[in-house]
Design a binder for these strands. Structure first.
Lengths: 246, 246
DNA sequence: CAAATGGTGACATATTTTGGCACCATTTTG
DNA sequence: CAAAATGGTGCCAAAATATGTCACCATTTG
């Protein structure tokens, strides 16, 4: 592994894990203890503030405020990102592809045009996928941008989440639920949660939610596999269903 | 002189003088002609557009617009990119994963630390995996790679989709359903569909589906808003639900 | 004290970078 | 046209740098 890559890997690992030991890092980046120590030294020279506690329970800790750089991506890195997304899209259309597309569009815009052309040719050659904007599968445009992170944070921390909800008739209510799942009914996204007030499950269209707020002081128990095969929680939909076969 | 410093010096020189020859640059940075040529090549790989005119009065010229790859991404966009790359890396180590990693490292480095925390939570919640040594992908890895594209195609074309399904008891059945939704209950993904044979909604764990097949000759009517606010299709879950408030 | 941890120095070995050289292709100038 | 100026490539040995191993030190925790 490259020196540069290893440095990045170490910084990321420290950012991610909060604290780590030299031996753990050495193992993680596939280098020797000595090399990691040299890397740490180099990073410190570059301005990273890395605290070190010695002894049992000790370890290295990166001062999060110490470095503020702008992400200046090189063209090959951008290509790699693009290819990644294209590959993912080819492998299966995860609901994030549209967002990723938006990000990629920005990157593409910033690239010199001849490079973009190269990239397209390259992708076509690899049969990984087209760059053209994906057919609209999920309407996230009207969604509160804070909602997904809030939902994920709430889900992970098992905290309640509170938000304003505007229902189909325009009535506004303030809800407080346990986030349980995310339902994608293209093009709509739903947040599914248990409402302790109503002692019932509720679902909410994500584009009708506003001002999400994670209630950090609260806590609920997560169910790991909420339901099993052939349970059918969708009976409410039966009445509406109409099928036709050609 | 360091490689990086030399690269910087070359770029600065080209910026300052507008145009320069290889020999002049070699003299300026104190390296050989060959080394400067290699540096130029490296800079081009990084995205610098350096025009070269040959012959008398020729020389190197830096395209001033080529350097700014200032793609300013929103945090959700960055998230989407990261997820894409994580998914790709999990799907199989394409040769680009290392480069993509480097790009991600920069993005991660540039994010405020609290956002990085959000990101980690987000990824963990989606169970796509960790950013660095990617861990298990649980159900995604066992998912038939053809499934999601098939689902999307079937959904968009309103075609029926047929597949083999292995239920919790290991029984195998061939199903034929209208694809209706995708349910994400971390870490499991479900495909939700109307089963006309059973005249009921069914959901299927995506990792238990195999040999998906879109029935192009068939057609069903799509419901645009399959269910509305305050309908609760999750009654089956009620019995299992336990909440506690701290 | 023993174990866990960060840290340093020395030295042999890998790996990468560099310089030098021979050539090639293109363009301008005389 | 011929010569000169310029960018560009391949090859190889030498130089520079990075890495691993090992021995050892200092501190902290239990």
């Amino acid at each position: 592994m490259n020196v540069r890559l290893r440095h990045d890997a170490i910084v990321r690992s420290l950012r991610r894990n909060g604290t780590s030991t030299i031996d753990a890092l050495a193992d993680e980046v596939g280098a020797s203890r000595r090399t990691v120590l040299r890397d740490i030294s180099a990073l410190r020279d570059e301005g990273y503030v890395i605290h070190a506690d010695v002894g049992r329970g000790g370890g290295l800790q990166l001062d999060p405020q110490s470095v503020q750089t702008n992400a200046r991506l090189t063209v090959p890195e951008v290509f790699a990102l693009l290819i990644s997304v294209a590959a993912m899209r080819a492998a299966g259309n995860l609901p994030f592809s549209e967002l990723a597309d938006a990000g990629l569009a920005k990157i593409e815009k910033a690239l010199p045009s001849d490079k973009v052309k190269d990239l397209r040719a390259f992708l076509e050659c690899l049969h990984i996928g087209q760059l053209s904007p994906l057919q609209d599968l999920s309407d996230m445009s009207k969604m509160d941008p804070d909602l997904l992170p809030a939902f994920e944070a709430a889900f992970l921390g098992r905290h309640f989440i509170r938000f304003d909800y505007r229902d189909a008739k325009g009535r506004k209510t303030r809800r407080e639920i346990e986030p349980q799942a995310m339902l994608v009914l293209p093009p709509l996204w739903y947040l599914v949660g248990w409402d302790p007030m109503r002692a019932d499950f509720r679902h909410f269209r994500m584009d009708r939610i506003s001002n999400p707020e994670v209630l950090a002081g609260t806590h609920f128990r997560r169910r790991h596999v909420p339901f099993e095969d052939d349970v059918c929680p969708y009976s409410a939909l039966k009445a509406e269903n109409r099928t036709s076969r050609l």
